[in-house]
Design a binder for these strands. Structure first.
Lengths: 243, 243
DNA sequence: TATAGTTGTCTATATCAATAGACATTTAAG
DNA sequence: CTTAAATGTCTATTGATATAGACAACTATA
């Protein structure tokens, strides 16, 4: 954590410093004390005014990452990243495993529509064929982890929204609909800045990063059963690929 | 591309709008015309002043994404994302394949050092054992794609920096050192904002996103031969995982 | 060759971001 | 009980950001 901050135009200094401190915290730089260094020290380290550091810390406090206590210092409220294994057997709820006490999957909305070109390619059907679209939010211990838009072939999985609403799990919903097992065929990963809708749905700090996965699941015969675009809060998850 | 911009504090409006336009371009929203809508239209769409839109476009022009021509409009200079397959046989140079005419790997610096806890875990050796560390930048057609920090067991691969400097490829360097084949064992993917050093090395726009991979490669007996932390410019690459 | 539709430039004003300094308030330790 | 060290609050000043309006310069087309 040394070095002046680069003065890049367009993003406020206090925000850049907040990012640096957040990164240092998640890298474990302050694990010994469990506290962020004093404002005066940080100001010196970053080569900025103490007030600027205060703005940065205020933002981190707003995010719930730290808590400033007058007379004592600024305490770190640690929250680990959830680890997400991506394998043939990738499952959201089960994948989280013991990392969270409670996993919930909420159905925001759903509709039947005609497959667009991307969805058709993902599900290996013809564009225009009917599909079920679901918008979901998944939470770990009440903390939003990801938003997802998922598409299913309408003929085979018309009951998906209802089953998902009851089970709050894709795996369990598939099971109810007669598909006892499925595998992850492909996963694409990119990263972008969150837009307003996702910032709101995931309770993100402004300017936050999303990890985006576009994934296809198939049944054991290789027939696509689900195409999904999931948007993960990048500061709350990491992906692990084991080969 | 509808809707007002969310006024998040800390990042300038023109930057938020630049991000939105960049995203719209890469989503193909303006593919029909190959041009960004007129400034007055964008100003109306985003609910901001035309001057603010101009600042955003100036930033995008600086990045080389668009080119404004007086009297005509603002032309899009399309540049696609490089696709990066992540599999057992993940290789940087070969993986890029036909997506770029020229791939280069530049050795910025290297040193011999003692393995820290993370590196030791990655290479399955004891902390303190000697390792070679290399800092590299990889470019596709002259455009920086990623920075990487890579560690190798010093005993087995002491000649790595020299071989890499000549071949500009990890795979070829391994071959020169007697390792004809290797496999990707694990890959972790996260995303963060770029710091100053990477912003400079990758010629990024301020505030850019990095996709970070932490990966271990092993020989065919499963003995780790390389541990690497690579930092990719998120707007220039995407990862694909095929299972 | 007009003319409509663009981008480019200039002036002016209000608000936000950053620095600077002084001092109050709270906590923990001697 | 003091005191050092930390966060909290206030005032003031400077530069960057955003809005507003007017007009110049350039391009393509009717």
């Amino acid at each position: 954590m040394a070095g002046q901050v680069q003065r890049q135009t367009g993003v406020a200094l206090w925000r850049q410093i907040a990012d640096r401190i957040r990164q240092a915290i998640s890298a474990g730089a302050y694990d010994e004390t469990g506290m962020v260094p004093p404002e005066t020290v940080l100001a010196l380290q970053f080569g900025v005014n103490r007030h600027t550091v205060r703005s940065a810390i205020a933002a981190l406090a707003q995010e719930g990452i730290v808590r400033a206590v007058q007379g004592r210092g600024t305490l770190i409220e640690r929250k680990e990243r959830l680890n997400f294994p991506i394998t043939k057997r990738t499952r959201f709820t089960a994948g989280i495993g013991e990392q969270a006490r409670e996993m919930r999957g909420l159905l925001l909305s759903y509709s039947q529509e005609k497959a667009g070109p991307d969805v058709a390619r993902g599900l290996k059907i013809r564009p225009g064929e009917p599909v079920i679209r679901m918008e979901t939010v998944r939470k770990a211990d009440g903390r939003p982890v990801s938003c997802a838009t998922a598409w299913f072939p309408a003929g085979r999985f018309g009951g998906m929204p209802d089953a998902y609403k009851r089970t709050e799990s894709i795996t369990k919903a598939f099971a109810e609909l007669g598909l006892s097992d499925y595998v992850r065929a492909t996963t694409e990963i990119t990263a972008v800045h969150a837009d307003e809708a996702d910032t709101a749905a995931l309770e993100l700090a402004p300017g936050a990063i999303l990890l985006i996965t576009k994934a296809t699941n198939t049944d054991l015969e290789g027939v696509p059963v689900q195409y999904a675009i999931s948007r993960f809060a990048a500061d709350r998850v990491q992906f692990t690929i084991e080969n």
